[in-house]
Nucleic acid binder design. Structure first.
Lengths: 343, 343
DNA sequence: TTTTTTAGCTAAATCGATTTATTTATATTC
DNA sequence: GAATATAAATAAATCGATTTAGCTAAAAAA
């Protein structure tokens, strides 16, 4: 029962009309192009009966539109990104778009390769978590009137659309929460980075400490890909040398490593330490002690991103759609059942 | 600096040769098609100088090959699938293929929509975690000589390639591990399902109990999408009514719910209970108490899947490539620092 | 010298759509 | 009855590649 694919030509041949007529009818232009009711009906019925589906490649080649949107994140296996991917995927399919996900590993080379790859496929729009050095590539897309929305971080120097959260505000609030709960020696573990989101988070922490006259303890680690041992060592040293009563992890993979370190080297401190992590994870709510987390509004971010891309697709170069959105994050407070304090 | 895209025609015009010649040269057929060294060099150099990239749509339309492989999983935001996605993505890009990820939510309707969608785009191959009722759709792909590899589960009734793990063996071993550690009343929480992988897991558990003359306590819950509260209630009842000293979770989202339940309703039992989960998660190793997990060999599965698809792509309908691989899972034993027993 | 080979290149068909420009027949207006 | 308008449909160009079949001129074989 090998049902080979039907083309518009097959329909035309079967009904003894021209491909032009078939195309007009199938694109809902029958009226406009004055195709008779009779022929219109005939074509529609026949197309339906053989379950005709247009070849999207041919269609895209001709129209220049592919109905595909690329979502390029740092790492699709990261909780934050994969959850968001699902949300974006759902919205996109609803609107008749398909989504291509890919990971750039925060490397410029990879980002560029991917962007080129997709340009060759005439992808309609891009949702990108940019690696540090691809400003020019992003600029180029913008210049070529290809819809791009950045998220998680952005380039202040170039005028692009983006959807981010108020990182410094979020960390500031969360730090204040720790302070309100009588923690006094609060550490901040982050990665070496000059990307907007990481700088903002650190700023939020430092400001909160200054305002409350508390000492600042910042540990900046290089994020050595696979070499997590090196990072763990640094965290061990850091925890040994400072008498911290609370720790703020600036990003979720650091939280993971940090918790591993605490578990392996300082199990006795786990219940005293106040811990806050940036980015929530379903498992944090079942962790002992539960981890308070700065949670990004995934649904909202996803909606805002898709909305922006779709509106950009509809806009013209003359009156481009502009949207630079900063969303608030929320602090999910979880109480430890062991500790007498609240994180 | 709007650099419009160059076509093969542009090259031909600029160098005063035919598009045919250009195409031959760019496809490395210069020698075979007896294009002179001189012309070959001229074309290659010019193509490079204008940074020519072929339009993949046109290419695919003509050749029928898209260099795209679809990976359809149940939920891309699930730890197991997203980790695997990354591995597959890396291998694919290495081999010059791109990967499209999508989630079918284990729903047949969605699976079908997605498969159709991709067939219209002439995708080269499919790696699929099939929802329960899409046997016929899979059969159709196979009949049409389109490479498909199933994984995680498969349809015993139809002859397809697949890569799975030995679920019953894995659960059997893990159960025996609990038994060896003197647990006697071991519960098994799973979902109502007649899919191969879930049946195999339950079989592994039941066999182990029988062999050791231990009682069986199986809880089968319906996986009501969003309504996790209902499942949690069932788990609460189950834990209240049976004097269990250990629990085996058959799948990782149940583990998550189960741990939530224990944390909320039976916090005092967390350290006595032996807990094993199917599917590991980075966070389980930092959980208190640490959770022993049946871990699927992600790297191997990913490699095997890609290998199979690639070999199928190279094979002909006359001598098709067959591969039905069953890989072993490993038990990652983690000791609790609280409990005197070992999970 | 004539015929056959071979080297080097290209015209044109093709993939499956969309879209512009044109044709043909009929109906309407002057 | 001739000129014009309209309805209904279509031929052909196009998107950007690949590929088959064929052409031309020079070299080799007869």
């Amino acid at each position: 029962m090998k049902n080979k694919r039907h083309s518009i030509k097959d329909i035309a041949a079967a009904l003894n009309v021209s491909v032009t007529t078939v195309s007009f009818v199938l694109n809902g232009k029958a009226r406009e192009k004055r195709i008779s009711e009779e022929v219109t009906k005939k074509v529609l019925e026949y197309a339906k009966s053989i379950n005709y589906k247009p070849n999207q490649l041919a269609q895209s080649l001709r129209t220049g539109r592919s109905k595909i949107i690329v979502v390029m994140v740092e790492d699709i296996s990261n909780y934050f990104f994969s959850k968001l991917a699902r949300i974006i995927e759902d919205i996109a399919y609803d609107k008749g778009y398909k989504v291509l996900f890919c990971s750039n590993e925060n490397k410029d080379e990879r980002s560029r390769e991917l962007i080129n790859l997709f340009r060759e496929r005439q992808v309609d729009g891009y949702i990108i978590v940019p690696s540090p050095g691809i400003q020019d590539d992003i600029s180029e897309l913008v210049l070529d009137d290809i819809p791009v929305v950045l998220f998680d971080r952005y380039f202040p120097e170039i005028d692009t659309n983006y959807v981010i959260i108020d990182n410094s505000e979020a960390v500031h609030n969360a730090s204040q929460h720790l302070i309100n709960n009588t923690y006094k020696r609060i550490g901040f573990i982050t990665i070496v980075s000059n990307q907007t989101q990481m700088e903002a988070r650190q700023r939020g922490y430092r400001d909160a400490m200054k305002e409350n006259g508390l000492p600042e303890f910042v540990l900046e680690v290089h994020f050595y890909e696979k070499n997590t041992d090196k990072i763990k060592e640094m965290i061990v040293d850091y925890l040994s040398n400072n008498q911290l009563d609370a720790i703020f992890f600036a990003t979720n993979y650091l939280t993971q490593l940090g918790l591993e370190v605490i578990r392996e080297s300082f199990p006795e401190r786990i219940n005293e330490l106040g811990i806050i992590t940036f980015d929530d994870n379903d498992l944090f709510k079942i962790y002992f002690p539960p981890i308070t987390a700065v949670s990004q509004p995934l649904e909202e971010i996803g909606k805002e991103l898709m909305n922006t891309v779709l509106k950009m697709l509809k806009s013209t170069p003359e009156k481009p759609y502009r949207n630079q959105k900063i969303l608030p994050a929320t602090l999910i407070k979880r109480n430890s059942s062991f500790s007498n304090k609240t994180t």
